[in-house]
């Protein structure tokens, strides 16, 4: 009924004694997430205020051994985040969700290389992402839980608050989500659109997919080609940054139009025409040369409701 996280998730919070780690660990516990351990090097055996029931360890390996952790979320500052990701992978964690923003590309190139080579079954989400939520079951990350609602739409996004905006609109329209995955705004990341779309395509609990992209890179273009070739479920897409000027980094390290590539104008026709199924079912979105996120909700309503 979901992908990546759910009732079976046993979460370790890396960096739980820090301000962000502690705050979001409490929020996750409140949402119902099974937080089984916290890790901060040097803080093993101590307690974090408000999280007295969650044991603290020095290493992720101990959290796996003693608390049975199978999923990790990382709130560690950028200079130490690459180390934290690799530590989790080496400890046998299956799903690593890295929230940290600002990790150098050099570090992530190496992390990505080692994961692909040595830890083929480990999934990394992020970095620089809001996390993953399966509404009603498990929230791992920093997103506001209450805007979500259990349902059938799989959401995958490169953005944070834009994802909240879209999820909020879907919920208002009565369209719940199976799982919402924030893959993050960095140029080098663990999971890309194609991976997430593959999981949603195979997930019986997901009946439709919403992809939220932005300028920079060619992930959306590649995803569109993949969807056309492989995906039978309806897919809607939205690209942010249509009015962004070239050569300027728009907040996200990955969001820059460079070398004449990565602009919304490059992405939109491909997303609109190659995902022929979604074009047929979402006439309003496809017909317009400019789509706003408000219309995305309407597009969804007119498209999926009619098709479903």
């Amino acid at each position: 009924m979901s992908v990546l996280v759910g009732f079976n998730t046993r979460l370790v919070v890396q960096g739980m004694s820090g301000a962000a780690g502690a705050f979001h660990a409490k929020q996750m516990v409140e949402y119902g997430t099974n937080v089984v351990a916290g890790v901060t090097p040097g803080k093993g055996g101590t307690k974090v205020e408000g999280l007295e029931k969650v044991p603290m360890y020095d290493t992720v390996a101990e959290a796996v051994e003693h608390a049975g952790a199978n999923t990790s979320v990382i709130y560690v500052p950028p200079p130490f985040a690459a180390d934290s990701i690799l530590e989790a992978a080496a400890a046998g964690i299956g799903v690593i969700i890295c929230i940290t923003e600002g990790i150098p590309a050099r570090d992530m190139i190496k992390v990505n290389y080692v994961l692909k080579l040595q830890y083929k079954n480990t999934v990394l989400i992020g970095p620089n992402c809001p996390g993953v939520i399966t509404p009603g079951q498990c929230k791992v990350g920093i997103m506001p839980g209450y805007i979500h609602k259990p349902g059938g739409v799989g959401v995958v996004s490169r953005s944070g608050t834009l994802t909240y905006e879209v999820v909020g609109q879907l919920t208002k329209l009565g369209l719940g989500q199976s799982t919402a995955i924030g893959i993050g705004g960095d140029p080098v990341k663990g999971t890309d659109f194609i991976d997430a779309i593959t999981w949603f395509n195979e997930d019986p609990g997901t009946s439709a997919i919403f992809m939220i992209g932005e300028i920079g890179g060619d992930s959306e273009e590649r995803a569109a080609a993949f969807i056309k070739a492989n995906v039978k479920k309806p897919v809607a897409a939205f690209i942010g940054g249509q009015t962004a000027p070239p050569g300027k980094r728009m907040g996200h390290a990955g969001a820059i139009i460079s070398g004449g590539k990565g602009g919304a104008a490059d992405k939109k026709p491909r997303c609109a025409t190659r995902t022929s199924r979604s074009r047929r079912r979402r006439p309003r979105w496809a017909r317009r040369s400019r789509a706003s996120s408000d219309e995305v909700g309407e597009a969804y309503e007119s498209g999926f409701r009619r098709s479903g």
């Binding site: 953005s159 834009l162 705004g185 300028i215 009015t243």
Partner: peptide, 29 residues
């Protein structure tokens, strides 16, 4: 705006309704 993606989309939607943004500004969390 808070968040880069939402900030970009805010510029886009202003443009959609016939205006033009003077800036991109992400205040962050």
């Amino acid at each position: 705006v808070n968040g880069a993606g939402l900030a970009m989309s805010t510029m886009d939607i202003i443009n959609f309704y016939g205006g033009l943004a003077a800036n991109f500004l992400d205040v962050g969390g």
